[in-house]
Design a binder for these strands. Structure first.
Length: 481
RNA sequence: GGCCCCUUCGUCUAAUCGGUUAGGACACCAGCCUUUCAAGCUGGCAACAGGGGUUCGAAUCCCCUAGGGGUCACCA
C-alpha cells in the first residue's frame, strides 16, 4: 500500500448531497488508483446543526453507493483535545493570541464596514495585549477566543492540482478565529489539524473551499507541518445555474434511491460531471473509472446536472443488470406499490424475475419498472381511454374477442408459442390483420396500449387470468353501447 | 463591495506542448426495424461569451469587457 492518504469529510447537517457523493467518488477513484488509504471523517464541530441521525444516513448512503473506506469514521467532536493542544502550542509560541472582543462589538464593526461598502477585517484589537491588560479583561469575566497571528504582507499560494497556482495576498486575510469561546475549533482549524495529524497527502474537496485554503495553509505553516496537496473540484449546479437545492427535485443520494436509481448508474453519471476518461465512452464501471482516473482530467468548470441523461443511463443499467441483482433491487419498489406483500416464496420470486425480464427494457427507473409490472399482479385496472377509442370501439370487437376467447379456452398447452400460433391461424382464417387481433387483446388483458410482446404476457399471466380478463373486457365493450 | 475561480452545441464533455470539415453522449427531429410501447440501428439539427492583441496560423497563449459561481461568521 502506498503512503497516499485521502479523506472524505462530510458534516452531518443533512443528507448526502449529490455534490458530496461526487467528492467522495473522486477521492475514492484517486486513492484506489494510487493504492492508498481512504479515510472517512465526520466534521461535526458545529454542535448546533450536527445531528446523529444524519450520520447514520450519511453512512447508509455511502454503503449503498458501495464506497468503502479503510479508516474511520473519525469524529471531530471526539478530537477536541487535539485541537486545543495545537492551539495551546501556537499560543505558547506566540503564533496565536487570545481575543476578548465581544461578538456584539465585532458585529457592530462589521455592519459599519458593510455600510461603507468596505470589507471588514479584524483590526487586531487584542493582538498585542500586555499580560496585565489580559488579566484585567479576564477578571471582568469576558470569554476569549483564540486567533491566529497571520502575516501582514506577502502572498500565500495554493498549488492546486486541478487549477494550478492560485495566489492570495496576506493583507486580505485577518487574524481569524481558530478556537471559539466554547472551546470548539472553527472549521478551518479543525479541518487542517485533522488533515495534518492524519497524514492526509491529498485533500480533494469542493471548490467552495478554495477561498478558505490560504487560511488553512497559514495554520499548517504556523503549526510546522508539511502541506498536503490540494485539489478543488468544481461545483454541481441546478439547471438554472443556481446552487442545487430542494426545489430542483432530487438532490440527495437517498432521494435518488427512492426514485429508483441504481447505484452504479448514479456513480457513472456523477463521475462524468466534471471528469471524462478522455475517450468517447460514457458507460464505465467503477473499476474502469479507477483505471483511467487522474486529477488532471478533472474539469475546472461547474457542471449543471441533467436528470434526462441520468435517466437514460439508469435505463441502460436496468437493461444490462444481472437479473438476480435487479430483482433484489426492484423488490422494495414492488412492495411499495402493493404488488408484493409479506414474504416472497420461491415461486413468487421466480415469477418476479420473469416479470422483470419482460418489462425491464421499457423502464428507466425502478419506479417505472414496478409501474410497468403492475398488471402482472393486479387484475383491476382502467382501460387506457385512447386505447378504448382505437381498439375497443371498432365495429365487431366484442364478437372478435369472444371468438378469440373461445379458441384460447380450447388450447391444451397455453404458452407463448401456442397462443401466437392460434392468433396467426385466426388471422388467416378470418382475413383480419394480425394487429386487429392483437390491439384489443392487449388492452383487454393489460389495460394499456404498450408493453412486452403480447404472447409473452399471456404465458406469464396464464390461461385462467387471460380468459377472465378477456371476458371482463367483452362485458365492458358491450356496456359502452 | 473586496478577493478568488470559471466560460466549447440546450445539457455533460473531447480536441492537454497553436495547424481538426471542432469529435462523442443525452435531449430533440426524421427514417428503418416491429403485434404495440420501448430498445436497437441510420441520418439530421446544434457550440469555441464578446473585443483586442501575439503568430504564417488561435477554441488553444496574453490583455480587456461581460456573464456565472465561490468566499469574506465564535457555519461547515
Amino acid at each position: 500500500m502506498s503512503n497516499v492518504r485521502v479523506r472524505f469529510a462530510p458534516s452531518p447537517t443533512g443528507e448526502l448531497h449529490i455534490g458530496g457523493a461526487r467528492t467522495a467518488l473522486f477521492n475514492l477513484l484517486f486513492v484506489r488508483s494510487a493504492g492508498g488509504t481512504f479515510v472517512l471523517r465526520i466534521d461535526d464541530t458545529d454542535l448546533e446543526r450536527s445531528r446523529a441521525e444524519y450520520i447514520d444516513k450519511l453512512i447508509d448512503s455511502l454503503h449503498w453507493l458501495g464506497f468503502e473506506w479503510d479508516e474511520g469514521p473519525y469524529y471531530q467532536s471526539g478530537r477536541i483535545k487535539e485541537y486545543t493542544g495545537e492551539a495551546e502550542r501556537l499560543l505558547a509560541e506566540n503564533k496565536a493570541y487570545r481575543c476578548y472582543c465581544s461578538v456584539e462589538d465585532l458585529a457592530r464593526a462589521r455592519d459599519a464596514a458593510r455600510g461603507e461598502n468596505k470589507t471588514f477585517l479584524y483590526p487586531g484589537t487584542c493582538r498585542n495585549l500586555t499580560p496585565a491588560a489580559e488579566e484585567s479583561l479576564r477578571k471582568e469575566g469576558r470569554g476569549a477566543v483564540i486567533r491566529l497571528r497571520t502575516p501582514d504582507h506577502g502572498t500565500t499560494v495554493v498549488d492546486d492540482q486541478i487549477r494550478g497556482e492560485v495566489s492570495f495576498e496576506n493583507e486580505m486575510l485577518d487574524d481569524f478565529i481558530i478556537l471559539k469561546s466554547n472551546g470548539q475549533p472553527t472549521y478551518n482549524f479543525a479541518s487542517i489539524v485533522d488533515d495534518l495529524q492524519m497524514k492526509i497527502t491529498d485533500v480533494i474537496r469542493a471548490e467552495e473551499h478554495l477561498s478558505n485554503t490560504p487560511r488553512q495553509i497559514l495554520c499548517a505553516l504556523a503549526l510546522g507541518y508539511e502541506l498536503p496537496r490540494f485539489s478543488h473540484v468544481p461545483m454541481i449546479l441546478a439547471p438554472d445555474r443556481s446552487k442545487l437545492s430542494k426545489r430542483h427535485g432530487a438532490t440527495s443520494v437517498e432521494e435518488f434511491y427512492n426514485e429508483g436509481y441504481l447505484p452504479e448508474a448514479l456513480i457513472n453519471y456523477i463521475a462524468l460531471l466534471g471528469w471524462s476518461p478522455g475517450e468517447d465512452r460514457e458507460i464505465l464501471s467503477l473499476e474502469e473509472m479507477i483505471e483511467s482516473f487522474t486529477l488532471q482530467r478533472v474539469n475546472k468548470t461547474a457542471a449543471i446536472y441533467d436528470v434526462a441523461k441520468l435517466a437514460w443511463m439508469n435505463g441502460h443499467y436496468i437493461r444490462e443488470y444481472d437479473p438476480e441483482k435487479l430483482a433484489e433491487a426492484a423488490l422494495p419498489f414492488f412492495r411499495k406499490r402493493g404488488l408484493v406483500e409479506g414474504d416472497l416464496p420461491a415461486e413468487g420470486y421466480d415469477y418476479l424475475k420473469k416479470v422483470i425480464a419482460a418489462v425491464r427494457e421499457r423502464a428507466r427507473t425502478l419506479v417505472e419498472l414496478a409501474d410497468a409490472a403492475e398488471y402482472f399482479y393486479i387484475g383491476r385496472f382502467e382501460y387506457d381511454p385512447k386505447g378504448v377509442k382505437k381498439a375497443f370501439q371498432k365495429e365487431g370487437t366484442a364478437e372478435l374477442l369472444r371468438t378469440l376467447t373461445g379458441e384460447l379456452r380450447s388450447l391444451e398447452t397455453f404458452n407463448m408459442e401456442s397462443t401466437e400460433a392460434l392468433y396467426h391461424a385466426v388471422s388467416e382464417r378470418s382475413g383480419l390483420s394480425f394487429g386487429r387481433l392483437i390491439q384489443p387483446t392487449r388492452l383487454a388483458i393489460t389495460g394499456r396500449m404498450g408493453g412486452p410482446g403480447l404472447f409473452e404476457i399471456m404465458e406469464l399471466l396464464g390461461k385462467e387470468k387471460t380468459i377472465a380478463r378477456m371476458e371482463k373486457a367483452i362485458g365492458y365493450i358491450e356496456s359502452l353501447n
